[in-house]
Simulated scan of single mutants.
Amino acid sequence: MNDIGRDLALICEEAARLVLPLWRSGLAVSHKADDSPVTEADRKGEALILERLAALYPGVPVISEEDASEFGTPEAIGPRFFLVDPVDGTKAFVRGDPNFTVNIALIEDARPVAGAVVAPATAETWFTTVQGATKRTAGEGEQPARARAWPKGGGLALVSHTMNDEAARALAERYGFADRKAMDSSIKFCRIAEGFADIYPRHGPTMEWDIAAGHAVLQAAGGSVLTPEGEPFLYGKAAAGFRNGAFVARGV
C-alpha cells in the first residue's frame, strides 16, 4: 500500500510544474468565504490532481480544498479516501515566499497510509515508500528521509508565521524546545522528517487536507503526529467538516 506514495509523488510533481510558473507572476488573488486567499494556481493544480487520481484510482473518493470550499464537504465518508491540498501555504505563495507545497494523502481507516508533498519552488519531493520516507530533489536523485533524535540542549520547533511571542513561549515551556523558526505550509512536517527540525506543535485551526500528506511522510520517516494528550491523530472527521483539533508533530 505504501508504494502508492510514489504514484502520488509523480502527480504532485506534475501539479507543481503547472503551479510554479504562476508563482511571483502577479496573478490575481480572490478570497473564499472564510477570507483565506485562493488563486488560479490553487484551481489549476487541483483540477489536474483530481483528473489524475480519477484515472489511477477510480471510485476512491477525494476530499480537496478548493472543491470543499466551493461545494462543501460530505456529511459522511468511507474508510478509504484521498485528501488533496493543491497549494498549501497560499499566503506564502502570494507573498512570493518559497514555502508552499502540493499535497496528496491516502487515508485508510482514519489513518494516513501513503502521501506525497512537493515544494515547487525548491524542486523537493517527499513521499512514502515500503522502505520508509524518501526525498527526491531535482538534479540530486533520491535519498532516505529520517527524523532525528531530540538534540541535547533542546530541539528546534517550526511554527506558523502568525504565532506571537507569548504563544510561542507557552509552547516552548510545555514541549521543551529551545529554538523556533517560522515557516509556512506542510513543509514543516517534511523538514522534521528529514532531520532539520524536531517538533511542530499546532494548537490553532487546520483542515485535514492541510496536514495529512505531511503526517504520512513524517510517520514513514520515524516521527509521529499525535494529539497533545498523546492519542492517535485521526482523519475522516466528516461531522466536523474535516476540521482538525490540536496536534503535535515531532521526530524521534
Rank of each mutant, 00 (worst) to 15 (best):
A16K: 00
P151M: 09
A76N: 12
E140L: 14
I187G: 00
V84N: 04
N2V: 02
L171Q: 00
A240I: 09
D109A: 15
P86V: 10
A149R: 07
D210T: 12
R202Q: 15
A240Q: 13
V252L: 10
W23C: 02
A147N: 00
K32N: 11
I187N: 06
L171C: 00
V38M: 08
A193R: 05
E124L: 07
S186F: 11
A149V: 14
A28F: 13
P74Y: 14
E208L: 03
D42T: 12
L158I: 14
A68T: 06
C190L: 09
V62D: 06
L83V: 13
Y235T: 02
E142H: 14
S64C: 07
A76C: 10
P205N: 12
H203W: 07
R146V: 15
I49P: 00
G115D: 05
P86Y: 07
G204P: 04
C190A: 09
D7M: 06
G141H: 09
V118K: 03
E166W: 06
L171G: 04
P232K: 11
M207D: 09
G96N: 09
E142I: 07
T125G: 01
I192H: 00
L234W: 07
Q219P: 00
Q131A: 14
A110R: 13
P151I: 14
A76E: 14
I199R: 01
G115N: 07
F177S: 00
G141P: 08
K188H: 04
A92D: 01
E194M: 15
F233V: 10
P98C: 08
T73Q: 12
V62F: 11
F93R: 02
G176M: 10
T137N: 06
A54I: 15
